[in-house]
Amino acid sequence: MQTERYITRSSRIRGYSIYLNSKLIYGKSPTAPGDFLNQAYQDFHINYPKFHKMDNMSKLGLLASEILLKDQLYKTRYQPYEMGVLLMNASASLDTDIKYYKTVSEIPSPALFVYTLPNIVIGEICIRNNFKGENAFFVFKQFDATFMAQYVTNLFENNDLEACLCGWVELLEENFEAMMLLVEKSGSSDAMAFSKENINKIYGEENG
C-alpha cells in the first residue's frame, strides 16, 4: 500500500516576485539579483547576519526556505534528524565559480571559494534550521518533477524522515528562480498530495 505524503507549504521566487502557497506576497522592480535578495531579506525582517556573507545562490535558497518555514511549526513537530532536504538546479555553483575565478589572478578569495560547490546552499539551510536528516543536491539540465517526486519518496521510505524540504534553486548571473516545498506525512484538508503532477503545477503556476 502506498503511503500518502502531502505538500503542506510552498514558496516560489521568480521574476522579482515571491509567492507563498501560490499567492503573491512580495514584488519588486528588476534589479541586480544580489540587490533584490538583500532587499527581500530586510523586508521580511530575517535576522541572520551570516546571510550577508553568502553567495547569491545560497541567499536565494535561504530566502526561499525562510519564507517556506516562517511559522517554525516544524521545530515542535520534528526532531532534527527527521527533516531531510533535497535541492536541484541547472547551473550548479557556476555563478560563484566565475566570480571566484576572477579573483584568482590576484588574491583568491576564501569567502568565495567556500561557495564553489552547489550543495553549500543545503548546508546553510541545515545550519540555520538545525536539520540533520538525509540531504542531497542534484544538477539537471532542467527542472525535473519526476525525479524530485521519486527521490523524496525514496528518502521517506528508506530513512527515518518525517518531513522533507525539497526544491529547485537556480541562479546564474541575472537569471534566478527558486521553488521550495515542505513535504510531510500528514496535511490539512487543503494540502496537495505529493506527486509529480502537483510539483509541476506549483512550479508552473507562476511561469505563465
Binding site: 556573507k53 588574491i107 578569495s109 576564501p110 569567502a111 567556500v114
Partner: peptide
C-alpha cells in the same frame, strides 16, 4: 575560520 582567511587577505591587499 573563513573570516580569519579573509583577514589575512585584507592584510595582504
Amino acid at each position: 575560520s573563513i573570516d580569519a582567511l579573509e583577514l589575512i587577505v585584507l592584510l595582504q591587499q
